[in-house]
Simulated assay, not measured.
Amino acid sequence: MSVTAADGFEAAGVAVGLKSSGNLDVAVVVNRGPLKVGAAVFTSNRAKANPILWSQQAVQDGVVEAVVLNSGGANCFTGSFGFQTTHQTAEKAAELLGVGSADILICSTGLIGTGDEVFRAKVLDGTERAIAAASADGGDAASLAIMTTDSKPKRSVVTQGGWTIGGMAKGAGMLAPGLATMLVVITTDAVLDASDADAALRRATSVTFDRLDSDGCMSTNDQVTLMVSGASGVRPARDDFADALTQVCLELATQLQGDAEGASHDISIEVVHAASEPDAVEVGRSVARNNLFKAAIFGNDPNWGRVLAAIGTTAAQFDPYDVDVWMNGVRVCSGGGPDASRDDVDLTPRSTRILIDLKVGDASATILTNDLTHDYVHENSAYAT
């Protein structure tokens, strides 16, 4: 059910020809209330798509009536025409729902730099058709409509204490923080005000989506939206809601990692005993973005020297000659020198765990990444053809 698992929401996915495959390509998620609270976080890329520019302004009052999403075109670097398309999409949705256009968020995903009158007409038609089709059973169709190079939809639902959180996500490439490239819509029927929703969303994304770093490439269209209907009538404790929201975000982030373009290994890089959490994140990310390390994992080669070389480029506090490294449970490096034989390490499973012990403090962090494969290079060499 994804985004319609929580009471008070309707959704739909329709096909209007934005994708050459003919698959579903326009989705809507509508909040029927009684609350119409919303919060969102966006890409930190300075190059932002038109829907991001629109939604950043629209969400500022903490009210979100609906989200309209399209795949098959990013509507980024399409000039004033592209922004007008976004504006007209919001106006179309608002007219059909009887609400203000400033309370409609817009999301787009697909190829950057393309957009014309045909694209606009299809998006507007899809908006009208999706709103007409929206229902409490439409969550799964909506999650299919936002897919691009994804091989499967990403969904998560958590229910506790009489309230529910449901979410859907898309993303398979350009997975790197601020945020990882994605469109995500999360709904809840819990009772929350705008400030609590915003705080919980930022707390959850900071330790989930922002730590998914599959290929080091940051998108122009990232948006994670939280919509609150309050339909359950239950106001959860702030920490309880934030923890449940973090669980949903982590499940979605893990599904994104598992569907990353061309990947053959899902790599978890856990950094422990760091002087600070930012240090742990910096060290983990330095490994996640190291192409030599990622290529070694693709080849099932436990080349721990590439781990030490990568973390040595950081400003984090540690002694590079007193670091331990484990690969899939085998300590291959102790105190900056060789430990167990590389022959003891089995890297053939898709799930790969790297543990780095910096031995200087009590902080830790985990970064999620993937290996660098021939398939990744091939897929991205032909993305626009």
Rank of each mutant, 00 (worst) to 15 (best):
R235W: 06
L256W: 00
R238K: 15
D243M: 04
V224T: 15
V228R: 09
T246C: 02
D239A: 08
R235Y: 05
L252F: 06
S219G: 09
D243Q: 11
E261T: 05
N221H: 02
L250A: 15
S219K: 10
D222P: 03
S219H: 08
V228N: 09
S232L: 07
S229E: 00
C249P: 15
C217W: 04
F241E: 11
A237R: 09
P236V: 07
D240W: 00
V228W: 10
E251I: 00
A253Q: 04
G216K: 10
V234L: 11
G258E: 12
Q247R: 12
V248W: 01
L245G: 05
T246Y: 01
G258K: 11
V224W: 14
N221I: 01
V234W: 06
P236S: 07
A253E: 04
A237E: 13
C217G: 00
R235M: 13
E261Q: 13
Q247M: 12
L245F: 08
G216N: 13
Q255Y: 05
T225W: 02
C249L: 14
L226N: 05
D222C: 02
Q255N: 01
Q223T: 13
V248S: 03
C249Y: 12
G258M: 11
Q257S: 02
L256M: 12
D215F: 01
A231P: 02
E251L: 06
C217V: 05
S229K: 01
L250P: 04
A263V: 11
S229Q: 00
V228H: 08
S229L: 00
Q255T: 08
A231Y: 03
N221Q: 04
R235F: 06
V234G: 09
S232P: 06
S232D: 03
N221A: 04
L245R: 03
F241I: 03
A237D: 13
A263Q: 11
G258W: 06
G216P: 03
L226R: 06
D215C: 08
L250I: 09
L256R: 00
S229H: 00
Q223A: 13
V234H: 11
M227N: 10
Q255I: 13
V224G: 07
Q257E: 04
A244F: 01
E261C: 10
L250D: 15
A242Q: 07
G230F: 08
S219N: 05
F241S: 08
E261K: 11
S232R: 06
L252V: 15
V228I: 13
G230V: 07
V248G: 04
A237S: 07
